[in-house]
């Protein structure tokens, strides 16, 4: 367990989760990992081009051609390389789902999909650029590990951890600069929820950029005498079912918060676990089955109800249904 936001440590400046990618690649290459990184004409935004600086022969851009990139990645992986392939979450999986399905997932290739600009927090580019369905697509693939970091520290830990095994991973990163949650560092364990707060009245389960507002929601609830447990569910798949079951038994009410359609993401995975093992009232904070649109990202989070206030309200609704 890691303590979040300890006062003893100075608060690092906000950083986007995507900012972790380039430096992590360089670190891995320097540590001697046999990695190759691919980009598809978005390398300045993913940060993948950072590898080209010190390891030019280890980085390729294929142009705007995501389907081509994914099958190339699979071919490279078949020669024993650990392959990182990066694009935006709308284009990967959006533009190359079948290539991911057959060449990466069915062949169980050692390819780490780095999907930047996930969610509506992309902002002004609007609906076509905002992935609200990528977690649904990726969690539906057998054998795919699906993770969503809540800050740049956790993103770095995940990207490095992914190099330690030979399975396919989908790592969803984001565009906006976020406050750092893991100020003391993060030991990331695949498939393990990280409890950030304890409480017995309700459990708030969040991932990605909803983790920090969810911690704030727990603070607000605490002031009203409501004890909220907070779980950072950074691994959507394989889901930490034990943590969910325990939360249901011990707190009796669940809230899931995510920057994704309420259909097919973290909330759906948790609901499936609850329904099978320990039915309990559950509420969702997420995108209510509509596409995104243009606007400043903070205004969009308000518009779509992805806020601490929404989590507080959802917690009260869940508790009332006990």
């Amino acid at each position: 367990m890691t303590t979040a936001r300890a006062a003893a440590f100075p608060q690092p400046p906000p950083a986007a989760t995507r900012e972790a990618y380039g430096p992590a690649l360089v670190k891995l290459a320097e540590a001697g990992h046999d990695i190759v990184a691919l980009d598809a004409d978005l390398s300045a935004s993913t940060g993948g081009n950072k590898l080209a600086g010190s390891f030019p022969d280890r980085w390729f851009t294929v142009g705007a051609a995501e389907a081509n990139m994914i099958s190339i990645a699979a071919g490279l992986a078949s020669t024993g390389k650990t392959v990182y392939a990066a694009s935006f979450a709308v284009f990967m999986p959006g533009h190359c789902f079948d290539q991911i399905r057959v060449h990466i997932a069915q062949q169980r290739m050692n390819v780490k999909l780095i999907a930047s600009h996930g969610g509506i927090s992309v902002g002004e580019d609007g609906a076509s650029a905002q992935a609200i369905e990528d977690l649904a697509l990726m969690t539906s693939l057998p054998g795919m590990n699906v993770v969503v970091p809540c800050d740049s520290v956790e993103a770095d830990a995940m990207i490095c951890r992914a190099a330690e095994d030979v399975e396919p991973w989908y790592i969803r990163l984001g565009r906006p600069k976020l406050p750092v949650v893991y100020t003391e560092g993060r030991h990331f364990e695949l498939g393990a929820a990280d409890q950030l707060r304890d409480g017995n009245d309700v459990t708030l389960i969040a991932c990605g950029l909803m983790v920090e507002p969810t911690i704030r929601a727990a603070d607000v609830l605490a002031q009203e005498g409501i004890g909220a447990r907070v779980l950072n569910m950074a691994t959507i798949k394989p889901l930490d079912e034990q943590a969910v079951i325990q939360a249901a038994h011990e707190t009796g009410a669940i809230v899931c918060a995510e920057e994704h359609n309420v259909i097919g993401g973290l909330g759906s995975a948790v609901a499936r676990t609850l329904a099978r093992h320990c039915p309990a009232p559950m509420e969702q904070v997420g995108i209510e089955d509509r596409f995104g649109q243009s606007g400043p990202w903070t205004a969009l989070l308000q518009e779509y109800g992805l806020t601490a206030e929404s989590v507080v309200a959802a917690a009260k609704r869940a508790i009332a249904r006990k």
Partner: peptide
């Protein structure tokens, strides 16, 4: 590109009228 505008960042069909394809 502002919140609520017809003039979205990328083309959206019929928004405004005259745009033929998203």
């Amino acid at each position: 590109r502002s919140l609520g505008t017809e003039l979205q960042g990328h083309v959206v069909r019929n928004k405004p009228p005259g745009v033929e394809m998203s």
